[in-house]
Design a protein around this nucleic acid. Structure first.
Lengths: 269, 269
DNA sequence: AAGTGGTCTAGACCACTTT
DNA sequence: AAGTGGTCTAGACCACTTC
């Protein structure tokens, strides 16, 4: 039984969970306006389940065999879909155990999102100190980056991160107010672990990729006050926009890195 | 005819081109001390052909069917090997045409190795100005990074790169003297196009990945002289080590980027 | 029409983990 | 022993490019 690609084209509605056309279908194919390989459609369906929270970060997703049965495709096709999700770091495969939803409660993931390393020695987790948390109307440049309406409410966070108790990073963070309703200074202060872990666990928002722009800048007075450097000292400015499923921007960051004894590490390939 | 993985284990000599054990082989398997999947062994063999120059940058490599015949494995196994090489940007697949060896004579590749973008507007190719080329005994830190003997000969290059005729990058480059014997200032000046293109075309050395460390630093007198900035202005320092096949380091770079109107772009995922 | 890479299936077996 | 992901094969057909 060989299925034609065009015939096995399945409708992928925006939200509704949908099974593919029955495997034995013959007749006139219902040609949809947009073509894509079967495994891409399966990938999109799995992505929906990830986004909807059907499988939460850290959890086991159904086995390849089960997904193949559910979607009425071969295991190989499910495999190729999961292969891509794995390459994009959205899931993690473990031979013999299964496939797990990626989570920020893992050192590996955190190092992907914090590229600052000591010039010598091992990479380590910084400690947070929250300086300020408030709700405000988003500045124009921030709301534009977050793709929300001008003047919409945002949560503003200001914090310092320390390595070996030395302040190295001064950071401002803006989050869409609608998504991060219940976020308070207390919760941020008491939460141990990476901030993105808090976001995924308590706000159902998974950061899956980010785009950064780096500049060398001179220390301003805020940096002087918090990083203990002199005015004008060179600092690495890192502007970040983070995205969740569907390439939706959900965080804007502006950080200043003191790179006297640390560096931003990047692999080109 | 089903082949066991262990039985199809093939010897992968360092240089000699070798065919896998015959497909129908039964008897006692010659268990090699290191195990690896067949497709990884095929990948290693293809890698050898790339490294040896059997297929040069920009050229078409044999089709999957032909490689499968040559290695006496299925097309699917060759496919998986090439899939990985493609993911690592060592080859480029083009449906209907074939698989090509990656080359630095391509805009896409060049942007992978130069992350500096204008804050607004399109990315563009910079223009080179060679300031100095000489052969010298490599400084200790450089020879250590290049994994050559202390005091070994290196080629030293100093250059400025301009965007829209404005000097933005001041760069020092060290190359192993043994590999880049015939590299002269004249050749560097007259060569149009990316330097890595020259390296691959005339020295048979393909840069396939690089590791960068970024610091924010204050402009020194060399930067003042060449970039036309004032002493102490913040600059982005980029220390790079580039690698060719077999993770062999073949270039050390120290660059200063003027980031007043440009930024270093990075995608985290 | 012929050749290339791209997709899809079905089935077998392997390596690893848990029961 | 059973279940999971990982490897390998063989064969079919599709999409794209070139002749």
């Amino acid at each position: 039984m060989v299925k034609s690609q065009a015939m096995s084209q399945i409708a992928v509605p925006p939200v509704v969970f949908n099974l593919p056309a029955s495997a034995g279908a013959t007749g006139t194919p219902v040609v949809s306006p947009t073509f894509s390989p079967l495994y891409q459609q399966i990938k999109a369906l799995i992505l929906q389940s990830l986004q909807s929270g059907e499988w939460k970060p850290g959890e086991l997703i159904p086995s390849e065999v089960e997904l193949a049965y559910r979607f009425k495709v071969s295991q190989g096709t499910v495999r190729k879909a999961i292969d891509e999700l794995s390459a994009e770091n959205l899931v993690m495969r473990r031979q013999g155990k299964g496939t797990f939803v990626a989570t920020h409660h893992e050192a590996r993931v955190q190092f992907r999102f914090l590229r600052l390393m000591p010039d010598s020695g091992e990479a380590q987790q910084p400690e947070n100190q929250i300086l300020e948390v408030k709700r405000m109307r988003g500045p124009a440049d921030v709301t534009r980056l977050l793709d929300i309406k001008a003047g919409d409410s945002v949560v503003y966070i200001r914090r310092v991160q320390r390595f070996d108790n030395v302040p190295i990073i001064l950071e401002e963070i803006w989050l869409p107010g609608v998504i991060f309703k219940g976020l308070t200074a207390e919760r941020l202060v008491e939460y141990k672990g990476p901030m993105y872990g808090l976001f995924e666990a308590e706000f159902g928002t998974q950061m899956i990729r980010a785009s950064e722009k780096l500049h060398a800048v001179a220390a301003d007075e805020a940096a002087v006050a918090t990083l203990g450097v002199e005015l004008g000292v060179p600092l690495l400015s890192v502007d970040r926009v983070s995205y969740t499923y569907g390439d939706k921007p959900v965080e804007v960051r502006r950080a200043l890195y003191l790179t006297a004894h640390h560096h931003y590490h990047n692999e080109l390939s």
